[in-house]
Write a protein that binds this DNA or RNA. Structure first.
Lengths: 136, 136
DNA sequence: TGCATACTCTATTAAATCGATAGGGTAAAA
DNA sequence: TTTTACCCTATCGATTTAATAGAGTATGCA
């Protein structure tokens, strides 16, 4: 299941991408428009800023804004930042690989075999979608 | 992330499918072979039996066995029984649909648009894999 | 300079979920 | 009638999730 963090983060990014200009947008405005708890959204936007997707400006007229064009923001990056690994099990993860303690052999593991396909299919979707694509 | 319940359930099904015959296999044997907590596995096998994938036999010589051929057991069914919805958000779920309270319009929702694609790609994988496929 | 604005950061918490465990109950076979 | 092995309920600790509170800090502007 998709976490609310990811859901809200995607909605916030979409809202920013659909602005006419790149002027900073206040947290309060995003929260209100997307029906998100403002405080919770704060922490999400902070995460997105630290990961380089958003910029921020303090003080009057401040807020958050996109650093890159929506066309250049890949869903693979967004998902990994907000949701973490795209793979459903660590043993098929590209960026967060971990061996299973209980599994004697990945090559013959049925779970591994299935989850590898699921990961690839999800990756294909995320790689083929930018922020611009999903707000159209 | 895939729950251990699903992971263990898949492993147990794989183990049963790879048997030479259809004689009942004891929980203890499956648990030992697949490195699973026996008590936890008990509840998982019970779920699989209630959903019609497994049969069971009590008493001496008892255990669990596959009811259908591995070729006829689709991963879509297994995943829905063990893991629940395949969709990452209820608003794109075929079997567990629910409307989002916070979302004013699904048609224009970016999250909806993206997750619809993810669901379809996962469904394709699960529909194209039977239990027989993943133990090969 | 001083004030208002709005982001920054830490800590806390309630609720839900997960994975595992305990223990007695019951059906079936020998 | 005894043993075997599945059946079922209850509970529990740990973790994660979603949300909240509140103090801190940088910026713009008068």
């Amino acid at each position: 299941m998709l976490s609310k963090k990811t859901k809200y983060g995607l909605k916030a990014l979409s809202y920013l991408a659909s602005q006419d200009n790149r002027l900073p947008v206040q947290i309060a405005e995003i929260a209100k428009h997307e029906n998100i708890s403002q405080k919770f959204l704060e922490s999400i936007l902070l995460t997105l800023r630290k990961s380089g997707l958003l910029g921020s400006k303090k003080g009057k007229g401040g807020g958050y804004y996109l650093i890159k064009d929506p066309e250049d923001i890949l869903m693979t990056d967004v998902m990994r930042i907000l949701e973490g690994p795209i793979a459903l099990v660590p043993c098929v993860s590209l960026n967060f690989y971990e061996q299973c303690e209980d599994c004697p052999d990945e090559a013959t593991c049925a779970v591994h075999k299935l989850m590898l396909q699921v990961r690839d299919s999800a990756l294909t979707v995320y790689r083929n979608n930018t922020l611009a694509d999903i707000i159209k």
